[in-house]
Design a protein around this nucleic acid. Structure first.
Lengths: 192, 192
DNA sequence: GGGTCAACCAAGCAAGCGCTAGTGTAAACG
DNA sequence: CGTTTACACTAGCGCTTGCTTGGTTGACCC
């Protein structure tokens, strides 16, 4: 009947679905709304995706993979000090909100709508991303840059960053780099 | 046809609705599910609430009012140092997650489902709560306890705290007081 | 003991939902 | 050329949704 590959057409449809999911939320977005946004009829949608759930999974996979890629790349390019790496991770996180905002927001806020199968598959991706964070935070703790419980600090930091999607205006005066610097400064002890 | 007062019966129904809204999300919670949880038939529900939206508004109003009350009380009882007040606000925030978790979580995560009328009415409550935070953070900044941009610091702190609903286990080893202490320690410069 | 009233029920309507079945079409392939 | 493949269409099925209607119950009141 249909396929579940990753054709370029499907990539584009996924991008448009992400936009609607952010605007309306997954549950409120109907297949008819999705189809209209994509310029096709609702029936044609199921040629590209097995069901509505699979569209959500595709959006989240795309968003998480993108965040992971940006984070890895940024980490490789920055200086090798704990402070620079912490700053780089924060900046990478905020930059995905610029370049790929919709998919990233959906990954954060519609995770619970995934069925168990999709959640199992995607949680590996998410774990890989969070592992990057814990690694960088461990380094910062070991270097005495920040203090406290490893688990709590990483949760607090990720909370502060994930919450930015609620108030951060990418077209405003503050750049991702500004925010990252401010966050790192807030939690760092004055060094050397 | 019905009423929109705040009878004791309605209070109880609101509490039960909050539970379902947290479990399933607002959109996935049907009026039939709500009615069954309340031990009545779905039609009877509309004797107490004008429509489904009004149930959500009632839950959120209750949750925000509770958080505001706890915060004000905790602030009055604590010492008058900036550090104690900052710690008190963080602890109050986390304690509402213990005593009134459901309503509080709904207020945070289903806000967008409110229609404009309800949102206008409830945003005053929310502003009052956030104003408390900004006041306490201003004091901490003025005293040199923390450093940075007033707007950004308060957003980061509220983000870290609001995110706790995703991972905090009230039955675990850490008390709200522990978490509050850790958070304040993380962002404070060593004093005196 | 008739009147009032909040609380609830049974039954169902109109609209919208995700999804399917069967078909058309134009390009790509051998 | 005939066959395959990718993509889209029309039409609608079976079900659920939020909500309405008209009526019943039992406690309380003077």
């Amino acid at each position: 009947m249909n396929v579940m590959n990753d054709s370029p057409r499907r990539k584009e449809l996924t991008r448009q679905a992400a936009q609607l999911f952010v605007q309306e939320g997954f549950d409120r977005t109907t297949v008819r709304m999705l189809a209209q946004e994509m310029g096709i009829k609702s029936g044609s949608l199921f040629h590209h995706f097995r069901d509505k759930q699979e569209i959500l999974a595709a959006v989240i996979e795309e968003g998480t993979q993108n965040a992971l890629a940006i984070a890895r790349e940024t980490l490789q390019q920055c200086d090798n000090t704990p402070e620079a790496r912490l700053h780089a991770m924060a900046r990478a996180h905020l930059e995905t909100l610029l370049t790929d905002r919709n998919a990233h927001v959906v990954a954060l806020y519609e995770w619970r709508r995934l069925d168990t199968a999709a959640r199992d598959h995607l949680s590996h991706l998410r774990d890989a991303y969070e592992a990057l964070w814990e690694e960088v935070i461990d380094e910062a703790l070991a270097a005495g840059l920040i203090h406290g419980d490893r688990f709590l600090v990483s949760r607090f930091v990720m909370g502060a960053l994930n919450w930015t999607v609620r108030w951060y205006d990418p077209s405003g005066a503050r750049s991702p780099d500004d925010l990252a610097r401010e966050l790192v400064a807030m939690i760092s002890r004055p060094a050397t």
